[in-house]
Simulated scan of single mutants.
Amino acid sequence: MSTLTPALEGVVEDFRAVGPQDRLQLLLELSRELPPLPERYAGAPERMERVDECQSPLFLAVEVDGEGGARAVHLYFDAPAEAPTTRGFAGILREGLDGSTPEEVLAVPDDFYVGLGLAEAVSPLRLRGMAAMLARIKRQVRAAA
């Protein structure tokens, strides 16, 4: 069964609670909250995976730590400050998935972003970038788990 993590459900609820213009503002806020890369990834895009489907350059890295039922997924994103939509999508995924178990991440529906209500404010091409980010995250989680 596909489900959202509790944190991702909270993000989706935040987006559903506001109108289209406010959704863009929420996306912009999440873009600003994307944390800087840890030293091991900063300035080393070759250690990250590029998501070519994104209109702006976006790189991501996925780490799975812990053992058994205590495993946790950690997400790292690198996108230019001049790409707030792409950074906002990365912020949604980080906010909603970071710290989740591999099983929780893999259970997220591939089209969960439809529930955000961004189709009215963002082009389908941009939404395709978010779908590609999630697909890459899931692939890296499967490889690490």
Rank of each mutant, 00 (worst) to 15 (best):
V11H: 04
A107V: 08
Q55N: 09
P36G: 04
L75G: 01
E33D: 15
P84A: 12
L118M: 14
L28S: 11
T101M: 04
R128A: 14
S123G: 13
E104L: 10
L26A: 09
E9G: 04
A83Q: 08
E104F: 08
R128P: 06
E63K: 07
R126V: 10
E95L: 12
E120H: 11
A144E: 12
R16K: 15
R136K: 13
V64N: 03
A72P: 01
V114A: 12
F112R: 02
A144Q: 15
C54W: 02
E120I: 06
Q55I: 09
L30H: 07
L24T: 01
M1A: 13
S123L: 11
G115W: 05
P36I: 00
L127C: 09
L34P: 00
A44Y: 05
S123W: 12
T85V: 15
V51R: 00
P57K: 04
L93S: 06
R23H: 06
A119Q: 13
R23T: 01
A144M: 09
R47P: 02
L134T: 05
G68L: 07
Q140M: 12
G115L: 09
F77L: 05
P124Q: 10
A79Q: 02
V73A: 03
V62M: 03
Y41L: 14
H74P: 01
S2F: 12
L27N: 02
V11N: 09
A44H: 14
S123H: 10
V105E: 08
Q55S: 10
E53F: 02
T3K: 13
D110S: 11
S100W: 05
T5G: 08
D52K: 14
A61K: 05
D98L: 09
L26P: 00
M48L: 13
A144R: 15
V64M: 05
P35R: 02
T86R: 04
R128S: 14
S100H: 06
C54F: 00
A119M: 11
A81D: 15
E120G: 13
R126S: 07
L125W: 11
Q25D: 15
D52N: 11
F112N: 05
L37D: 03
F59I: 03
D110L: 10
G88D: 04
R71T: 02
V51E: 00
A119D: 15
I137Y: 07
R23G: 03
H74C: 05
G66T: 11
G19Q: 08
E46L: 04
G88H: 02
M130N: 04
E39M: 03
V114G: 11
L127H: 06
T101G: 14
L30Q: 07
H74I: 03
V122Y: 06
V73I: 10
V114P: 06
E49M: 10
R47A: 13
L28R: 12
M1D: 10
E82D: 15
F59Q: 01
E67C: 02
D98M: 08
Q25G: 09
V51Y: 00
Q55K: 14
L93E: 09
